[in-house]
Nucleic acid binder design. Sequence first.
DNA 1: ATGAAAGCGCTAACAA
DNA 2: TTGTTAGCGCTTTCAT
Lengths: 338, 338
Amino acid sequence: MTETAKRRPGPRIEEVARVAGVSKSTVSRVINDEQYVSARAREAVHAAIAQLGYSPNQAARALAGHRANAIALVVSEPSGRVLGDPFFAGVLRGVHSELAGRHVQLLLMMSQPTDTEDLVSYLSSGHVDGALLVSLHGEDPLVPMLAEIGLPVVSGGRPLGRTVPFVDADNFSGALEAARHLVSLGRKRIATVAGPKDMAVGADRLSGFKRGLSEAKMANDLVVHGDFTPEGGARAMERLLQKEPHLDAVFVAADIMALGAMQVLHAQGRRIPQDVAVVGFDDSVFAATATPPLTTIRQDVEELGRTMTWRLLAELAGEAGLPPSLLLPTSLIKRASA
Amino acid sequence: MTETAKRRPGPRIEEVARVAGVSKSTVSRVINDEQYVSARAREAVHAAIAQLGYSPNQAARALAGHRANAIALVVSEPSGRVLGDPFFAGVLRGVHSELAGRHVQLLLMMSQPTDTEDLVSYLSSGHVDGALLVSLHGEDPLVPMLAEIGLPVVSGGRPLGRTVPFVDADNFSGALEAARHLVSLGRKRIATVAGPKDMAVGADRLSGFKRGLSEAKMANDLVVHGDFTPEGGARAMERLLQKEPHLDAVFVAADIMALGAMQVLHAQGRRIPQDVAVVGFDDSVFAATATPPLTTIRQDVEELGRTMTWRLLAELAGEAGLPPSLLLPTSLIKRASA
DNA sequence: ATGAAAGCGCTAACAA
DNA sequence: TTGTTAGCGCTTTCAT
């Protein structure tokens, strides 16, 4: 392994104890916010800590306390492409804000399909107290493996297959609202660029969309799947236009794909929204600055991160009666494209 | 602090030793890839490890070995807005890929201005072996503080003020190339939306731009600063058009600002590139899907992350003669906007 | 090349 | 409410 340098040590708990005139145990109790410490002792310890600039050694705490005081954020995608996604960035921000103030560190881990075993073995040997899983492609082997070793886990986004606690945007309802909006605009031939078939988010948004059209007694035969990239969105749009040159609206299951789709529409001389209305999903950073500004379904990804973290920490704290899964509301953001 | 649950333990080093028929010390040597281990013993240990699914306890290693086997990625920005930036995502990906295979964990930390002291105290007490700093706004107090405690540090992007080792894109040369490109296109009134004055990246790109115009004996009076957001880019563009309605080219110091600037140009009926040529910087995910596709200066942010990490690990390994700072090349990516 | 033994700095019974 | 003591699971001298 890499040679990492040794660091100059700071003050130990022993020294804090001496300065505060108490025992190590009392200092430990203060640090861990336990009861049965007199106000007098507590203050003395706090003063000593401040004076010495003491910060407890995490390794020693973890070793003695049988807890890592850390959770992992596991990004389960081969390419790590997900890191470039504003979605991930938002989740990260939410996780971080929820962690602020608690003394829990965040370890970022990426699971390459080649080293799933290593990852599981690492996670299982007490290095972290729990894990947040993000961007599960379909039936990720990670899920059953982690479930088996009993590591508390919360998934961001509904995982396909094995049931684990998860938090997700209400993708079904959001897509339903998108479809209803297009219908209410009087559009007659409504298509969709759906997400990947092997992701729950793709399936859920497609279900909601179909439900919206069936409510209005409209056909839902114009479905092409994309891969959550602008290029994928562009290709899907081309195929849709081939299938149905007269389509007058399209629900694109992710803003980032909508970007590519709109480029194709522009290139083919279709005016947005006059000829083709476009609704995206996510309300990512791309939406407001698209040309024209994109009408979309907003999901609060930061809230998603916060909620996942809250759920995991609650479970680690042994809270009872936690809901196995949570759906966060979405909302329609009307802009110029539809 | 948060109650994090205790985890069921895996096999200990002792058990590996028993199964392999050697002592704990030998197992430790194998794990740490030390010399003076017979091939025979090494193999036996590897077999035992595989058989038992052993994974060493990080806390114990850190405690006994006086090294954390972890580095921190410190995101120094109040709002955490930087997390939404594709730049950050790219750096993160690079850091991660460079770390792959080494047994070094990545801790993600965000520095709120209110808790800089806490952060420094945390970083200084041996929880990490070194730190990667990202997105330093101007003269960040973090830099001198970390320098003082002697924590090995590498900054991503040139920090203003105090000198610490850093890796950065060659912003000056990139902006110079952008300016030259606009000049070569025959543009006569070339403006720029520069970055914030208090960031080195803003200053460096502005310098390069000015140099490019002065080479061509052109005036460089059309400068307005933006804040690396689409809205900031839009406001800056409006001001530029007010100052000089006849400008025929603009270098926008970040793609994300260019998005806003282009929206303003569209709104005012200026055609891109016929009336106004636009060049961005970064070649972020926004560039290719902008309308029209954005000509820009590419910086390889992933390489930036990799290089920072390499530099830090090399220093931790005690390598001598490391360059204090490194500039990564940029390149002009021609698309439709200029 | 290998093993025995002494901690690393803290928490967690237990006793007081 | 507080202090004492015994580890947590490793790495690291120091012998051998």
